[in-house]
Design a protein around this nucleic acid. Sequence first.
RNA 1: GGGCGGUUAGCUCAAUUGGUUAGAGCGUCGCGUUCACAUCGCGAAGGUCACAGGUUCGAAUCCUGUAUCGCCCACCA
Length: 900
Amino acid sequence: MTEIPSRYNPQETEDKWYKFWTENNLFSAKADPAKKPFCIVIPPPNVTGILHMGHALNNTIQDILIRYHRMLGESSLWMPGTDHAGIATQNVVEKDIAKQNLKRQDLGREKFLERVWQWRDQYGSTIINQLKKLGASCDWPRLRFTMDEDYSRAVKEAFVELWNDGLIYQSDYIINWCPRCQTALADEEAPHHDVEGKLYYIRYPLKDKILNPKSEIRNKSKIQNSKSKNYIVVATTRPETMLGDTAVAVNPKDKRFKNLIGETVILPLMNREIKIIADQLVDPKFGTGLVKVTPAHDPNDYEMGLRHKLQFINILHPNGVLNENAGEYSGMDRFEAREAILEDLTERKLIEKIDDYAHAVGHCYRCHTVIEPYLSKQWFVKMKPLAKEAIEAVKKGKIKFYPKRWTKVYLNWMENIRDWCISRQIWWGHRIPVWYCQDCKNIIASVDTPKTCSKCNSINLKQDEDVLDTWFSSWLWPFATFYWPNKDEKVKKELEYFYPTNTLVTAQEIIFFWVARMIMAGLYFRKDIPFRDVYIHGTVRDIEGKKMSKSLGNVIDPLDIIKEYGCDALRFSLVSLTSTGQDVFLSKEKFEKGRNFANKIWNASRFILLNLKEENTSQDLCVVFEKENLNLADRWILSNFYQMLADLDKALANYRFNESVNLIYEFFWRKFCDWYLEIAKLNINDKNTQIILYKILEKSLRILHPFMPFLTEEVWQKLPNVKESISISSWPHIQKQIIDRKVNSQMQILMDIITCVRNIRSNVKIPVNEFINIQIQTTNKAKAALINENKEIIKTLAQVKEIIFIKDKKEKQKGISSVVSKDLSLNIPLEGIVDTQKEEQRIKSQIEELRAMIIDKESRLKNKAFLAKAPEEVVEAEKERVAEIKEKIGKCKEILRAFN
RNA sequence: GGGCGGUUAGCUCAAUUGGUUAGAGCGUCGCGUUCACAUCGCGAAGGUCACAGGUUCGAAUCCUGUAUCGCCCACCA
């Protein structure tokens, strides 16, 4: 055997094996009718992306599933790709050119896009290379990009199909506008965050009141019944929007203001006359019950504006600077204007009061700038018709969420869905495939660039300037990555083979953006669901529960962890921390568990390989199991392996990854290493021992492989008789006939004796290297025989010189005794003075514990209802237990007496 | 304003459909370098399962309420 270092060194193995896998095309999957398909499409990371812990968790889970199914013999395809990420990427490149004091407008559309493509060519593969470091077994030659030519065609096809079906329309509407990115955003892209703001109460003078102080308004208005008041008060959080006010509204049922309806107020600062209108949208309980109406800058006000045919005054430039409609404030930034306006209002004594007010404000999900509701012409997708089937598919269970609770979140969103604003005023993205005839105003939506107007044959056509929302391309991902709608037979067959895909693995943040929309797109364009299962994992957070982010400086970089602990350690630890859907709280130390386990596997392998004779490695385990006389430990470890395997398959089928990892850990470390390997040392050259050591190791490596791919390949390649990569080896089959419960209880007897002896030794401080005699007293002949057969195990593992069976108390030598079970006790003869205090204490507390149990159980057994209603097995078990405990207590007392 | 999740050992988390004595890792304490592994081994200590009711023969687990932390959604200015 060649030298094997005593520490596992991930740095030396990882890149080597990754190269080996890809060079041999081991991750490539074909549409093979003889095999079952298994397919996952990767949530395409942004081309601007850098691998963070969220990616690490997300992709580790996918890789586990993919590798597992590959080993199950399925045609297991992991479709890789990246997303052009319109706004995010454009922002990055804009920042880049800003270093040269350039704006994108300085370059012009074409030149700017060239720069973006250059940037992509240079940095776009960063995240892909990082995924490779993670061990991701994607079918890399299939790598897709949402701006690829074929993919772009799919996007246009999708647009035109929806347009032809009347599901896309263009409209003036209040949308979320990011003044920094200078684009419209979808509702999902403008999440609300609480902001500590102010609620400003502003006085608007009443025109009539000024002209006619005797007006009846004075006395009927409750909150403004002061004689001197010739104004009304409105409340707002955004005072600068008052410049665009074209009405004030009250609730028609609000008695206080009944007589105000129809009156005119003078809009301060602008000196515009605006009417007081009645609209049910107004909540009488909020603020003063009087609402300023700014139809161009608030969604509610917009609706009121339509209803009451108000004027729509846009006061903002796209960059958030006030425009010519803002009077003397034009040219100021919106927040600057707010201050100026407040100052002027204060000066004119028009501020009634200012309250602190925490409220939720929309923020741009890309740059976190406060968004403005903004009236503009945009493109929308009608969502209700698409949502209908998407709701059905989930309700009928065609698509299942894991964990289940996300179903409700999904349905709730779907059922309240609103139309989707898909146009973006940026340059990087899929340009909207719509042309406007400059002559007859005809609108043409077309996949290919039209040459003439379909109505008037004019050649004077102009394409829409906007691009599509990035998510308008990603919602096609599960089928556009298979070159949909390409009609070529070969290409179509692939799509038909792998679609619907099996599992989508993603984080909760993206359910609305992506998951929900993919379901709609799949059902609409493909008439079939895009995937069957959706596994939602938790969010990775730091140890304080905060989301990891660069700005918080609490990031743990997965690549650093890979360097320091190894990729397998990273994967193992991450997965062992994710119980279904719970957020993962990380700290660096948590990766030690994975590193230590990797080292344990390494060393157990090292031990076996150093002791293995090659001729013993080609035996079939099942044949050996049936033909040979296996000893107890052999049968025990085999039974445990297959029991664990059965549990593991079940856990994986239910996406219980942490349970999977724990099962393997428990088996390999706590059973195989702690017990079996130690026992195997007794007869390491025995043929059966050799075969079992080899087989358990070899099978353990296989089941470990999806979780820890590099280490397992490295060890696997050191096994004799191994030719191919472990990544394409087959997953072990369950052998039910080998699972044997009786073997477990027999082995437990030995383990209990050994633990008991070790315990006493520790308590009375018998030196580890001192071999002692033990006396065993048992009435159970089977147990005695079992112990006798396996006495070497006890001797070695408990440092015992001789095991002496005794029949009664008289034979017992002076020493320390202990009760192992009701019919078995042991005694360690001790000469001279030893410190027995601790041991005595141990027995005493043991008795106390047992007594407490008896009290509990006896009261239960006295309960008639329990006897009548509990299942018979439970009652019987309790009775047996009581008898057993009683016997044990008796023995313990006996021992205690011997101390005195 | 709705919805969801958490609250279990000093710390971080498990506990599948209610059923023996609620588990693990880290940390703590004691012993140990006998050659697979000190990234280790052996032994031990440590829990009124947030709180209060209820259902049940039986509850960490089911129901109701409370407290507390966190997340998501929502056009109340």
